[in-house]
Amino acid sequence: MALAPIGLQHFLVLGTILFCIGMYGALSRSNAVGVLLSIELMLNAVNVIMVAFAKFIDTPQELAGQVFAIFIMTVAAAEAAVGLAIVISVYRLRHSIQVDDIDLLKN
């Protein structure tokens, strides 16, 4: 493995590792901002995989992976902006951004 040139699989495994780290963070964090950070990590992990596909996969849609990555980045930016705005307004309302406290929909 160490002798093999860096190929598609390397990037895929790296992306998966990052994705799962992000997932663990998203699931185990109790701070809402922490959850958002983890989600960013997951999105980036996916991006890495997308761009790797763009480089290595034989497909008529040239560079489709990179275009995907750009859009994911865009969506992530929008999501981060809105998500953080929500976090701030929740904080203003409840003086907490612990996700366990954000349970207005219950009851």
Binding site: A26, L27, V99
Partner: peptide, 14 residues
């Protein structure tokens, strides 16, 4: 199951 806790829901999704 319906804890109202978002992490639990997210956990269920994944």
């Amino acid at each position: 199951v319906q804890t109202g806790r978002i992490p639990a829901y997210a956990l269920a999704v994944f």
